[in-house]
């Protein structure tokens, strides 16, 4: 499930070779950042979450057996970080859209993309994860359900509800979320 190069880098990283682990990060950093940005809506938080995901991956390297693709294994770790972060954030009662506006480091992509991202942030974290995994990252319903630890039916329902809400938020006329 891993390429020869990747397999060698994983083996070397387990032995404490920092260069090898840096090479693994370089191979997957854009995919992980894309996920963490879609889930958090903030560049600063996306970076934090991506860092935490790679650190967690390094700590857990010994538990990676090669049954799944390394990228999928890493993706799952990052997704868990995002969902955990969302729970913590919800407990604090702040909203991501406020964060995105007050973060001085954030560079919006363009107004349309920004309004879509804001609409995504209005979904529940479970619904957003369902959209990010299937629509943005192209996973099948079965793969996404397995990644999120829920039944395929549950995932389909979350997607249905998410699309219905998004259609209202970003549909024709581009109503403000």
């Amino acid at each position: 499930m891993v390429t020869d190069d990747e397999g060698t880098l994983i083996a070397q990283s387990r032995k404490g070779d920092w260069e090898a682990f840096a090479a693994l990060i370089r191979m997957h950093q854009r995919m992980i950042h894309s996920l963490t940005y879609r889930m958090s809506g903030s560049l600063a938080d996306a970076e934090d979450l991506a860092q935490e995901a790679f650190i967690q991956a390094y700590r857990s390297l010994d538990s990676y057996r090669g049954a799944a693709k390394f990228s999928s294994w890493l993706y799952r770790i990052a997704l868990n970080q995002c969902l955990r972060w969302r729970r913590l954030e919800r407990r604090r009662g702040a909203t991501n859209s406020e964060w995105a506006r007050t973060d001085p480091n954030d560079q919006p992509a363009d107004p349309r993309s920004e309004s879509i991202q804001e609409a995504l942030l209005l979904l529940s974290s479970e619904q957003r994860a369902a959209v990010v995994l299937t629509v943005f990252d192209g996973l099948t319903h079965s793969e996404a359900a397995s990644m999120l630890g829920c039944a395929e039916k549950t995932l389909s329902w979350r997607l249905f509800a998410a699309r219905r809400r998004l259609a209202k938020l970003i549909g024709p006329g581009d109503k403000a979320p």
Binding site: I25, Q29, H33, R38, L43, A50, D106, I116, Q117, I170
Partner: peptide, 20 residues
């Protein structure tokens, strides 16, 4: 519509430095 939403771009230096 969703797929048309672009991600904000980060400079190349960011990607060079992130692993470090």
């Amino acid at each position: 519509l969703l797929r048309g939403a672009r991600l904000p771009q980060r400079p190349d230096e960011y990607w060079d430095e992130f692993p470090s």
